Simulated scan of single mutants.
Amino acid sequence: MSECTHDCSTCAQNCGERQEPQSLLKQPNPKSSIKKVIGIVSGKGGVGKSLVTAMMAVLLHRRGYRTGVLDADITGPSIPKAFGVHGRAMMQDQCVLPCASKTGIDVMSVNLMLENETDPVVWRGPIIANMVTQFWTDVLWKDIDFLFVDMPPGTGDVPLTVFQSIPLDGILVVTSPQELVSMIVAKAVTMANMMHVPILGVVENMSYVKCPSCGEKIPVFGESHIEEATKKYGLKVLAHGPLDPQIAFKIDKGCAEDVDAPWLDPAADEVEALLKK
């Protein structure tokens, strides 16, 4: 506990008697209804975190659940483009309404708040972190079974804000098959443990390219080190995703809902099981 600079005996907050750390969790919009919140994290950028976020929302939606995506990657928002969602979010009864994809997945991103979606977000950390919090407190997430939070890479201000402000039911760690993976996983695990958020498992993206002629899986980034990296922390490897130009093409065209990603089914199973606990 930090030292006070005043007479605690006259303090209305009784800070001299306070022993437990105060929770920084924010309440969602009073009109929201959200059953489970899942964070998608990575220790570095460029590993396909937003792809995994989008596909998890799609897979659970196909299973009959109502899903949404909160795009917390404020300076690198890509979720609206992946779903082909454009335009601006609307206000209703002092609430911000998320935009809906063509199949009914709710999406909220800073791109949907800007006058032009290509405008850069040149904001300082506290403003960015406050925007993420507002996506939780001011946006009306109606009847959502699973809300997926696409978090920015690393362990800086915004990931910390998400961990502290939004009650996450679990996180998925996305990584790549390079040797650096052990350090990346370690950083994500350490942060999750510090914030007392359970890790559901690890998704390794870009694990291989499938030969179009013979179907052989070619590890273009070298042999995977994911098993040894996760074993140390007792984590499950839930998926090995391919480096597939067709997936990238569909995402770039805003057709995430047309992508087949059976390799993510075990991760979807793990998330779905949260509703049964």
Rank of each mutant, 00 (worst) to 15 (best):
G87D: 07
G87K: 05
R88D: 06
R88N: 15
R88P: 15
R88I: 12
R88F: 07
A89P: 09
A89R: 00
A89N: 11
A89W: 15
M90T: 04
M90K: 14
M90D: 09
M90F: 07
M91C: 09
M91S: 09
M91I: 12
M91P: 10
M91Y: 05
Q92I: 04
Q92N: 12
Q92L: 05
D93A: 12
Q94N: 08
Q94W: 07
Q94M: 11
Q94K: 08
Q94D: 15
Q94V: 10
C95W: 08
C95N: 06
C95P: 00
C95Q: 14
V96K: 07
V96L: 13
V96C: 05
V96R: 04
L97Q: 14
L97T: 04
L97G: 02
L97V: 03
P98S: 15
P98E: 08
P98V: 04
C99N: 12
C99F: 06
A100L: 03
A100K: 12
A100Q: 14
S101R: 01
K102Y: 13
K102S: 09
K102R: 12
T103Q: 12
T103C: 04
T103E: 15
T103P: 07
G104A: 11
G104I: 03
G104D: 04
G104M: 09
I105G: 02
I105P: 00
I105E: 01
I105Q: 00
I105H: 01
I105S: 01
D106E: 08
D106V: 04
D106H: 10
D106P: 02
D106N: 10
V107W: 01
V107N: 08
V107H: 02
V107S: 11
V107T: 06
V107K: 04
M108D: 03
S109M: 07
V110C: 09
V110D: 02
V110Q: 02
N111Q: 06
N111G: 06
L112F: 04
L112R: 07
M113K: 06
M113L: 14
M113G: 07
M113C: 15
L114A: 00
L114K: 05
L114N: 02
E115L: 00
E115G: 10
N116C: 03
N116K: 13
N116P: 07
N116D: 09
E117A: 15
E117N: 13
E117F: 04
E117R: 15
E117S: 06
